[in-house]
Design a protein around this nucleic acid. Structure first.
Lengths: 243, 243
DNA sequence: TTATTTTTATGCGTGAAATCACAGTTTATG
DNA sequence: CATAAACTGTGATTTCACGCATAAAAATAA
């Protein structure tokens, strides 16, 4: 998994990285002291991926916990009809592969870089030792897993109560919270996904997403800036479509 | 939460229960030795609910981990249009309320007994002490949460790739695995939910569930026995509709 | 058992989203 | 900066689940 190029990067970045980047960015290590952080840092390997590169393939047996240090990735399943259903978008500080740490099973999804992405990798065996010497890490992971459960439960609720507008609104609000930056006229969102990606995230056709977003623009709720940005003008109005 | 009646039950049941029931049924305590099990047993309270009774209300702040000892419950959210979206069905050995153990927040769903149900309750403060003295419990909970994530991810996949047949098949297979009993001609499933319940579980209209199940019966894949049982005759054929 | 209530099956019309097709726009690339 | 490639928007058409209505069946109570 770690090729030569990655090793070179590792060496050149590590001093900086161990103390400033991975370990401190990540909530699961937030309760650690300096000494413990250094210990964790020693166990970490690094790797870089270009946009479109696969980090993990569906069904592949992985052996590590992977933490996003920079960039973002999508985790998706390939459905029967050949489409992709995106389940997660992981960004800086997020992790995946936690399921393989305890049991021994295959990745339930593909993970693909949405842009240039740097990750920190901790091998299963190291992590198991780590979790025993610092049990609080398990609790932190538990917390993160609970947040994911929350998100998935809400997604299921919205997907179940079949109003399509609500699904589009929900994803826009999610992106606004996660990627939005203040802007004189509202919130500027850098979309992590194309229209097709959004459609695959919320289980709709690409065209439907286009149409619904056009309507929201006509209503003055948002403004599309090119294909990759959205300026959210009236958040409260958007939230109303959820109720 | 614990009324007088429950306390009486507690006393009368406890000896038997502590050593034979809750603690041993539950995977999160599976790695404990006898001494530890006894310690846990001391912290447990009991309560009984009749069919239709609410164990927890959506939005309510709860303070305990609840383990199903006998019976089953549904956890559901009430959607905008007044319907219920069922998220989980918890049976013997399952637990809920784990999210309130770490942080302090409200239940994301209603929990309602589907039949006479007995539960074991551990208070937050006791559990926090327990988890510190036996860190392995956190790991066990992690495992269980990972399994839930798996299930929700699969549900989202099926709900996203809008083939309705697949949703019905998935839920039938899930019930077959969880509640199915061997039968000379296949697998006999005691359905935990009515047609309407199933519909609310997979986000469809009740009529649509009826129709799809009728088709499956015509195709000889299953046989409906009254309203509460299904005899699955051809599992592999049912699985094909997922692929 | 019979009566009552609840649950289920099914035909049918409507409407909303999927799909197809294509033009137009944006973004990436050399 | 120009050209190719990828992505997006929108009309026309089709499909299929929803929801109503009603009859039948099953579960529950008397």
């Amino acid at each position: 998994m770690v090729n030569t190029t990655a090793k070179i990067n590792t060496i050149s970045n590590c001093k900086k990285c161990n103390h400033k980047l991975c370990t401190q960015k990540v909530s699961i290590f937030s309760s650690l002291n300096m000494e413990q952080l250094a210990k964790v840092g020693d166990l970490i390997n690094h790797r870089r991926y270009k946009k479109g590169e696969l980090l993990v393939m569906e069904g592949e047996k992985t052996e590590s916990l992977v933490i996003i240090n920079e960039g973002q990735v999508k985790a998706y399943k390939t459905t029967l009809d050949g489409k992709e259903q995106i389940i997660y978008i992981f960004s800086e500080g997020d992790f995946f592969g936690e399921r393989n740490l305890l049991r021994d099973y295959a990745s339930p999804y593909n993970v693909e870089a949405l842009e240039e992405t740097h990750v920190c990798i901790i091998h299963k065996r190291d992590f198991q030792i780590l979790i025993k010497s610092i049990p609080d890490i398990a609790v932190k992971i538990m917390e993160e897993l609970c947040m994911r459960l929350d998100r998935l439960e809400n997604t299921i609720e919205t997907m179940g109560s079949r109003t399509v507008e609500a699904r589009v609104s929900l994803v826009l609000l999610e992106f606004a919270d996660k990627y939005g930056k203040p802007h004189p006229r509202g919130t500027l969102i850098e979309l992590p996904l194309s229209r097709e990606g959004i459609a695959n995230y919320i289980g709709l056709a690409r065209e439907t997403v286009s149409r619904k977003m056009s309507i929201l623009q006509e209503e003055g709720i948002l403004e599309m800036i090119g294909n990759k940005k959205v300026l959210l003008l009236n958040r409260s109005e958007l939230e109303k479509t959820l109720k």
